[in-house]
């Protein structure tokens, strides 16, 4: 169903996106265009609607208004799993691993839709099953070793240290083979050393998997260091966009974070 992507087509094009819960406007008139290979940050105070925007892009929420185009195709109204299969991977703000399953299985689940064999093959345990299951497992093991998780592969996911759980979640999202990766507060709860490691990891996967990345983050150090472009949301609306330097000097942004009056001081 996918046509070859024209290089000039933006990876993600969001126009006029809005979501209203009851009477509450969580997101209104959100516009954003991301070109291939960009690393874009989405910041804003708590409750600004960042995660809601993510949930609409990945299909968990149905937008009240607006259009979302991924590589030129509209994804509004598609089921979340269909959107994932088109090539949008994501992680969650509060880590959502399959906590009682092993690290290996966590990643093998993400490989499911290109497992290469059907349920019937699985029930019959035929040659097709054995071959593909072995390949799948080896692929997963290779993949885990890229992330230095191979020594944990038999471990139950919830027993991993916190930093490794974040890493596993990113690995799992990448196993879905996305073109666009959405990271929802990847640095939440990390100490400065772990944040440095995370920044290295993000640079590394971006090169290695040829990714376009959109990330939500509160850790300004991380955002300012690695993002090329930043969009700022406040009360569901875009209040600024630009390079890290522009954003740092934008009075509206300072106001949104620190309140009125602070802008004059800054």
């Amino acid at each position: 169903m996918m046509t070859p992507v024209n290089p000039s087509t933006p990876v993600l094009e969001v126009t006029g996106l809005a979501k209203i819960f009851g009477g509450l406007r969580a997101v209104s008139d959100f516009n954003m265009t991301i070109q291939k290979g960009e690393l874009v940050g989405l910041i804003g105070p708590n409750g600004a609607g960042k995660t809601t925007a993510f949930n609409m892009i990945t299909g968990l929420y149905f937008p009240t208004h607006g259009e979302i185009k991924f590589e030129g195709t509209s994804v509004v109204g598609l089921q979340p799993h269909e959107i994932t299969r088109m090539g949008i991977g994501r992680t969650f703000q509060n880590i959502r691993l399959f906590s009682n399953l092993s690290v290996l299985d966590n990643v093998r689940i993400a490989y499911h839709f290109h497992s290469g064999y059907s349920l019937t093959d699985g029930i019959l345990r035929n040659a097709n099953y054995s071959k593909n299951e072995r390949e799948l497992t080896e692929k997963t093991q290779d993949f885990l070793s890229i992330f230095h998780l191979n020594k944990f592969e038999g471990e139950i996911a919830k027993n991993l240290p916190y930093g490794q759980q974040r890493r596993l979640e990113i690995a799992r999202a990448l196993a879905c083979n996305p073109h666009l990766l959405l990271l929802d507060e990847p640095a939440a709860g990390m100490n400065p050393k772990e944040i440095t490691e995370l920044m290295d990891l993000i640079h590394f996967i971006r090169e290695k998997f040829d990714l376009t990345i959109l990330l939500i983050e509160h850790q300004m150090r991380l955002v300012m260091d690695i993002c090329e472009k930043i969009t700022v949301l406040d009360f569901g609306e875009v209040i600024a966009r630009g390079t890290p330097v522009e954003i740092q000097n934008n009075p509206k942004v300072v106001e949104a974070y620190l309140g009125k009056g602070a802008a004059n001081v800054a």
Binding site: A18, S28, D29, H65, V76
Partner: peptide, 17 residues
């Protein structure tokens, strides 16, 4: 400005196809 947004956003038809 929340209430003003409605006019700005283009009327996109979101009905399932």
């Amino acid at each position: 400005q929340n209430t003003l947004v409605e006019q700005n956003s283009p009327p996109v038809d979101l009905k399932p196809r």
